[in-house]
Measured scan of single mutants.
Amino acid sequence: DSWHDTVDGIELELHGADEELLKLAKELLKRGVSEEEVRRIIEELLK
């Protein structure tokens, strides 16, 4: 799946992010949310 590559990229960027955020990112990508949107959501949550 192409979203796996996206998640791997996000995981590299979010090496400090907790497991729950990564699960959320994967779930959003699986549901068709764009990579940009996922990054934006996670950045908001990390604030």
Rank of each mutant, 00 (worst) to 15 (best):
D1V: 07
D1W: 00
D1M: 04
D1K: 03
D1S: 12
S2P: 11
S2T: 10
S2N: 14
S2Y: 10
W3H: 12
W3I: 12
W3V: 13
W3E: 11
W3P: 06
H4W: 10
H4V: 10
H4T: 08
H4M: 10
D5T: 11
D5Y: 02
D5N: 09
D5K: 02
D5P: 14
D5Q: 08
T6M: 12
T6K: 10
T6N: 11
T6A: 10
T6E: 10
T6D: 10
T6H: 13
V7H: 08
V7L: 09
V7T: 11
D8F: 03
D8M: 14
D8C: 06
D8Q: 13
D8R: 04
D8T: 13
D8G: 12
G9C: 05
G9L: 14
G9R: 13
G9V: 12
I10N: 07
E11V: 13
E11C: 06
E11Y: 02
E11H: 14
E11M: 14
E11Q: 11
E11T: 07
E11W: 07
L12R: 04
L12I: 14
L12A: 05
L12C: 05
E13I: 06
E13G: 07
E13M: 05
E13F: 02
L14P: 05
H15P: 14
H15V: 14
H15L: 14
H15D: 11
G16S: 06
G16W: 11
G16T: 12
A17G: 09
A17P: 04
A17F: 06
A17E: 06
D18M: 12
D18C: 03
D18S: 15
D18P: 14
E19K: 10
E19C: 11
E19G: 11
E19Q: 13
E19V: 12
E19Y: 13
E19R: 10
E20P: 05
E20H: 11
E20N: 12
E20L: 11
E20R: 14
E20M: 14
L21F: 05
L21H: 03
L21Q: 02
L21D: 00
L22Q: 08
L22W: 14
L22G: 02
L22Y: 15
L22V: 07
K23G: 02
K23I: 06
K23T: 06
L24N: 01
L24M: 07
L24P: 00
L24T: 03
A25F: 05
A25G: 02
A25R: 10
A25S: 02
A25V: 11
K26E: 09
K26S: 06
K26D: 03
E27Y: 12
E27H: 11
E27W: 14
E27V: 13
E27F: 10
E27S: 13
E27P: 00
E27M: 15
E27T: 15
L28K: 00
L28E: 00
L28D: 00
L28W: 03
L29S: 01
L29H: 02
L29E: 01
L29C: 01
L29K: 05
L29D: 00
L29P: 00
K30W: 08
K30V: 08
K30S: 14
K30C: 02
K30R: 14
K30D: 09
R31N: 09
G32E: 01
G32I: 01
V33I: 07
V33L: 12
V33D: 02
V33F: 15
V33S: 03
V33W: 13
S34K: 08
S34I: 03
S34D: 06
S34N: 08
S34E: 05
E35T: 11
E35F: 14
E35C: 08
E35P: 15
E35D: 04
E35N: 07
E35R: 15
E35I: 15
E35M: 15
E36V: 11
E36Y: 15
E36K: 09
E36G: 08
E36C: 02
E36A: 13
E36T: 12
E37R: 06
E37N: 07
E37M: 07
E37D: 09
E37K: 06
V38H: 00
V38W: 03
V38L: 02
V38M: 03
V38S: 01
R39G: 03
R39D: 01
R39Y: 15
R39V: 06
R39M: 08
R39Q: 04
R40T: 05
R40D: 02
R40C: 02
I41S: 01
I41L: 06
I41C: 01
I41Y: 07
I42K: 00
I42A: 01
I42S: 00
E43H: 15
E43D: 08
E43P: 00
E43A: 14
E43F: 15
E43I: 14
E44A: 14
E44T: 12
E44I: 09
L45A: 06
L45D: 00
L45I: 09
L45T: 03
L45R: 04
L45K: 05
L46W: 10
L46K: 05
L46P: 01
L46Q: 06
L46A: 04
K47F: 11
K47D: 04
K47G: 07
K47Y: 10
